[in-house]
Design a protein around this nucleic acid. Sequence first.
DNA 1: AAGGCATAAATTATCTATAATTTTGGATCG
DNA 2: CGATCCAAAATTATAGATAATTTATGCCTT
Lengths: 222, 222
Amino acid sequence: MAKGTDDTIAVRIGKVLADRIISGAIEPGARLRQDHVAEEFNTSHVPVREAFRRLEAQGLAVSEPRRGVRVAAFDLGEVKEVAEMRAALEVLALRHAAPHLTSAILDQAEEATKAGDKSRDVRSWEEANRAFHRLILAPCGMPRLLATIDDLHAASARFLFAAWRSEWETRTDQDHRAILSALRQGNTESAAATLGRHVQWIGRKPVRTASGATREAFAIVG
Amino acid sequence: MAKGTDDTIAVRIGKVLADRIISGAIEPGARLRQDHVAEEFNTSHVPVREAFRRLEAQGLAVSEPRRGVRVAAFDLGEVKEVAEMRAALEVLALRHAAPHLTSAILDQAEEATKAGDKSRDVRSWEEANRAFHRLILAPCGMPRLLATIDDLHAASARFLFAAWRSEWETRTDQDHRAILSALRQGNTESAAATLGRHVQWIGRKPVRTASGATREAFAIVG
DNA sequence: AAGGCATAAATTATCTATAATTTTGGATCG
DNA sequence: CGATCCAAAATTATAGATAATTTATGCCTT
């Protein structure tokens, strides 16, 4: 995988921080102090500030003027919101991508599904899942739409990791298979309908809180 | 209108530049040189760069590392793309907003429609149109969705100004009225369907190019 | 509590280095 | 002899580092 060694320091910092926020390595609400980050990356704070702006735009951080920036919090409402946005936009993308889907692409997507089914941890499952969605949507050729969907996927992954950080039991994705089979038959509408339902399926799971009690955690699983 | 005197210089610069790009005061493809902007606003280049990052996220500027940033270009494809995204997302927002719409809000929306019908120039028409959409969608209570829609509105306005910069003939918006009447009757589905069609209506108009020839210009008019 | 001082952190300014673009001088070819 | 192309230097612009300033905040005193 290209490590992007040629892009700017600000971009590099942004990617690393995004990954940490998504994976849950930094907690929601945690403060991001610019000179701490600057020190860690052996830079000044100037590129750090630019990275913060990018995170802000992705919805991963929130900044209050003169008071610093903190990792964005999220609640069940936002999980639902992201799920519905993904449903609306991914269905749109799929409708435009469908005419350009080749069997080669669909085969790759099937591989991604299989990889997901074999995953023993959330991280690799998420990676495979994202690959599946990207493969079938990319041929729509709508860059702005794809960029927005990507940001929503990042948010989804965040919710997922928050709920399933430690334990993850293998699950086989029937929806992905149904979508692929509909696409192979040229039944775009059926594929779109299934996709729309698929990304709105919200998994719930009890997790132990810091105080020892258990609460329900929610995440988009698709 | 709140001038936002308390937000950071970077934010202020970002707003001014965004307005210029949207209004067409700066041409698509034009380079944005950081120290020129810095000089104009009597600041250093640091807040300017942060403003650039914000513009980039909004899709109003594109930046190549070490080569500077330029105003984003756009073509008919992007006009269509934005129209379809707006249709998908505004319909979603309306479905959630509908249960929370009060007659007071609908009256305000009707006022906005009237103001639009009376507008003698694109700028004030656009303002009224945006107010209408925002009024009926805001009660959905989905901040991320609304923020995304806002960015798409900015893009729409850009297309509109590019095509209708000089001449603008008064037009009465039947769609807005149909949407309002459906909403007043509690017929959300009909309102949503009309809204979906409404924002995908793309106006076309011949404009004179720099070389003297005429070409077709396209814009979302809704 | 209310107010003021001290500390810490964010924002912006100034300065430096490095990369990119333009210009210019020369050489080669028609 | 003129034009064109290439190369190297000079200019310009971006990116980043360091320094200064402003703003918020916590603590202490009254």
